[in-house]
């Protein structure tokens, strides 16, 4: 393989992982827009998506598609429980931003430990969706899982765009993002929207986890790195802009895959975090500018 092929190959895998970061980033934005909260348990949703699917598939022999569907619904439910038990009491008390972040980070740890106790600490993987040989473009191999990730993510982004633009619920959520009090005056049930935002964002995280797990692995403690990557994606795109976050995720995935190629896999999160610091220093509002 020539150097150019290697770079291309890396970029292809970077695009796949970048889509996943983008989905996680969108999850951050959906909750942030509905409530002004940065939910740090976002990574737990990603972990749970892969983990629940694995447990259903391997231990209980549920068909793959059904297992994935049940996992997404279950994780969305976990999102609502998190919102009811942890976020809402703090929100009612008008707790400051960092208390919220701390509480969700603590929730992340709780979810991690419960998973550890209920399952175990071994890395788990899922079978690829289609076990076909990779497509060869010249000397660059593209496996079907990457295509599933990219196509799945694009479909979700499209569906979300429609949801926010066309449906009444989507419009109501956007109204909450613009001005919560005004939305309340329009008889929009703001607190239901908050729960819904957590469900939606948890479901997105779960989908990201299920898409990704066949190419990597999942374990009880993979959540925080994913949350950080998703957060960086959201910052790059301008916090609170879901589609900016998706673009940010792609950019981050590409940068990271190049960093792995040149610096070694060990420093991939250091590379990602350096991107974050660079943005914080130079352009905290992100490429597209902050949403508010």
């Amino acid at each position: 393989m020539t150097q150019a092929d290697l770079v291309l190959q890396s970029l292809v895998s970077g695009l796949g992982i970048g889509c996943v970061y983008g989905l996680i980033g969108i999850g951050f934005c959906v909750i942030y827009n509905a409530s002004g909260i940065v939910n740090f348990a976002q990574g737990a949703f990603v972990m749970l998506g892969g983990m629940i699917t694995h447990v259903l598939l391997v231990r209980y022999h549920v068909p793959y598609a059904l297992a994935a569907f049940v996992a997404v619904v279950a994780v969305a439910a976990v999102g609502v429980v998190l919102e009811r038990l942890v976020v809402r009491p703090l929100w009612m008390r008008k707790a400051p931003v960092f208390v919220m972040i701390l509480a969700t980070l603590a929730a992340q740890i709780v979810i991690e430990r419960v998973t550890f106790l209920l399952v175990d600490d071994q890395p788990k993987t899922l079978p690829v969706f289609l076990d076909w040989p990779p497509i060869m473009l010249g000397r660059v191999a593209i496996n079907y899982q990457s295509l599933f990730i990219i196509a799945g993510s694009l479909a979700i982004v499209g569906a979300l765009a429609l949801f926010f633009k066309v449906t009444l619920t989507g419009k109501a959520m956007r109204a909450c993002a613009i001005d919560r009090e005004a939305a309340l005056l329009q008889a929009i049930p703001v607190s239901t929207m908050l729960a819904l935002a957590f469900a939606l964002s948890a479901g997105l995280g779960a989908v990201a986890g299920i898409l990704l797990t066949p190419t990597q692995y999942t374990a009880f403690n993979v959540g925080v790195p994913f949350a950080i990557s998703g957060f960086i994606a959201a910052i790059i795109g301008g916090f609170g802009r879901p589609f900016g976050a998706f673009v940010g995720g792609l950019a981050l995935g590409l940068v990271q895959s190049i960093a792995i190629l040149w610096l070694g896999a060990g420093l991939k999160s250091a590379a990602a975090l350096s991107v974050l610091l660079l943005f914080l220093f130079v352009r905290p509002a992100g490429i597209f500018g902050a949403a508010k």
Binding site: I101, G266, L267, A270, L276, L277
Partner: peptide, 30 residues
């Protein structure tokens, strides 16, 4: 780290500092 991030507020500062903690951890490992 402080000079640029302390101009920022709320979640930017939180995340910037969280990132530093994780970077140093990773360097200690690598």
């Amino acid at each position: 780290i402080g000079w640029p991030t302390l101009r920022l507020k709320g979640h930017y500062l939180s995340m910037g500092t969280l990132a530093i903690g994780l970077i140093v951890y990773e360097i200690a490992v690598q």
